[in-house]
C-alpha cells in the first residue's frame, strides 16, 4: 500500500512539475514578448495568469479527491492484488490519450480547411499531451500487469494497440520537430495527423485478428463488468479529475505555443 501511495505521489509530482515548468516558461515568454512588441495590449490579453492558476488549483483539488477515493475510499477487489487500484488512473489516462489524439485529428482537418495556424497549434498540443498520457497509460498498465500476469508486457491486442498509437504519434511529433518552416510543418503534420488517426481502427482490427484477448474489459458498462458501484464512482471521479488536469495542461501549453508564435513573429 505504501509503495503504491508513493508511486501515485510520484506521478502527481511529475504532473505538477510539468504544469509549473510550462507556466514558468510562459512567464518568461511574456516578458520577452513584452520587450519586443509594441502591441502590449494583445499580449497582456493573452497572459491571463489568474485563470490559469485557477485551473491548476482545480486540477490539484480534483486529483487529490480522486487519489483519496482511489487509494482509501474504494473497497478492495475480491481476489485481486492491491495493485488493482491502478485501474483508476490507468483508464483515465487512456481516455485522455484518446481525447488528445482526437483533438489532433480535428485540428488537422480544421487547419487544412481554414488555413489558420491556430488550429495547427491545437493539433500539436493535442498530440503532445496524448503521447504523455498514452505513455502514462502504458506504464501504469505494465506495473499492473507485472503483479497480475507476472509479466511486464504481453503481446495482446489492447497493449499492442496502445504501443502502436504511441509510435504513430511520436512519429507525428518528430515530423513537427525536424521541420523548420511553420506553414509547411503545419501542412505536413495535418496530413499525417489525419492519416494517422484514420489508421487507428485498421490497426485495432488487424491486431484483434492477430492476437488473443487477455486484457480485462471493465468499462463497457455491462452486467459482468466486475466493478462495484463505489469503484465505478471512483473511476468516474478520477476520469473527471484527469479531464481537468488535461484541460489545464492543454490551455497552458496552447498559451505557451501561441506566445512562442507571437514572439517569432515579433523577431522577424
Amino acid at each position: 500500500m505504501s509503495y503504491l501511495l508513493s508511486a501515485y505521489g510520484f506521478l502527481l509530482l511529475i504532473m505538477i512539475g510539468y504544469i509549473v515548468r510550462v507556466n514558468l516558461k510562459c512567464g518568461r515568454l511574456v516578458k520577452e514578448a513584452g520587450c519586443l512588441s509594441n502591441d502590449q495590449k494583445s499580449i497582456s490579453k493573452l497572459d491571463s495568469s489568474k485563470a490559469r492558476l485557477c485551473l491548476i488549483g482545480f486540477a490539484l483539488l480534483f486529483i487529490s479527491v480522486a487519489l483519496y477515493m482511489a487509494l482509501i475510499w474504494s473497497p478492495d477487489a475480491k481476489g485481486e492484488p492491491a495493485t488493482y487500484r491502478i485501474i483508476y488512473f490507468h483508464v483515465a489516462a487512456a481516455f485522455m490519450s484518446y481525447v488528445g489524439f482526437f483533438i489532433t485529428f480535428a485540428g488537422s482537418i480544421l487547419y487544412l480547411w481554414k488555413r489558420d495556424l491556430r488550429f495547427d497549434r491545437w493539433a500539436k498540443v493535442g498530440a503532445d499531451l496524448g503521447v504523455h498520457f498514452c505513455a502514462l497509460m502504458i506504464i501504469t498498465g505494465m506495473i499492473w500487469g507485472k503483479q497480475r500476469w507476472g509479466a511486464w508486457w504481453i503481446w495482446e491486442p489492447r497493449l499492442t494497440l496502445a504501443l502502436v498509437l504511441l509510435v504513430i504519434y511520436v512519429g507525428y511529433l518528430i515530423l513537427r520537430h525536424v521541420m523548420e518552416n511553420p506553414v509547411t510543418t503545419a501542412r505536413y503534420a495535418s496530413v499525417y495527423g489525419i492519416i494517422g488517426f484514420i489508421d487507428v481502427p485498421l490497426v485495432h482490427y488487424s491486431i484483434k485478428l492477430w492476437g488473443k484477448i487477455m486484457h480485462p474489459v471493465v468499462t463497457d458498462g455491462g452486467k459482468n463488468s466486475g466493478l462495484a458501484p463505489e469503484m465505478m464512482l471512483t473511476l468516474e471521479v478520477s476520469i473527471i479529475a484527469f479531464l481537468i488536469v488535461f484541460a489545464a495542461m492543454y490551455i497552458i501549453r496552447l498559451h505557451v505555443d501561441s506566445l512562442e508564435a507571437n514572439l517569432s513573429r515579433c523577431r522577424t
Partner: peptide
C-alpha cells in the same frame, strides 16, 4: 521536401502500414 525528413520516412511509414504487414 526536407533533407531532415528524408531519413524519417520509415519512422512515419512503418507504424501506419502495420495492418498490411500483419
Amino acid at each position: 521536401a526536407s533533407a531532415k525528413l528524408r531519413y524519417m520516412l520509415p519512422v512515419l511509414l512503418y507504424p501506419l502500414i502495420l495492418p498490411v504487414v500483419i
